[in-house]
């Protein structure tokens, strides 16, 4: 598992990377009430804003952490945004990207580094 400074977690399986937000991010956001996900088959470039996530108070974006193609999105969190608070690092994953270049993952933090990062 890898982590970004934008508080995303990335779980690699072959060349497909599953992406969600960390428990820390979910707690900081508060109650999630709306999620908009990208469409499957969309080609994305690292740092594209591809997800909108809204809590009661505010809207935030989630950036594509790597280049690739969206191969699956988690419609369950669109139907029930509260799942993002209930199980952010499990059931409430956001999308899966077929990575164009897995070496982009090397820039990201491992779990120990992420824990240091959030203090």
């Amino acid at each position: 598992m890898k982590f970004t400074e934008e508080h995303e977690w990335l779980d690699v399986d072959g060349d497909v990377v599953t992406i969600g937000i960390t428990a820390h991010a979910a707690e900081q956001l508060g109650d999630v009430v709306f999620v908009e996900l990208p469409e499957v088959d969309t080609e994305v470039t690292k740092d594209d804003e591809i997800v909108v996530i809204e809590s009661v108070k505010a809207a935030s974006d989630i950036l594509a952490p790597i280049d690739g193609e969206i191969v699956e999105v988690n419609e369950a969190i669109v139907a029930e945004p509260g799942k993002v608070n209930d199980d952010p690092e499990g059931e409430a994953w956001f999308f899966k990207i077929k990575a164009a270049d897995l070496s982009q993952m090397d820039d990201y933090m491992d779990e120990a580094e992420y824990k240091d990062f959030i203090g």
Binding site: G30, D31, V33, S55, V56, K57, N85
Partner: peptide, 9 residues
């Protein structure tokens, strides 16, 4: 801004 209960609750 909020307590542990959270804004919604």
């Amino acid at each position: 801004v909020q307590y542990p209960l959270g804004v919604m609750k």
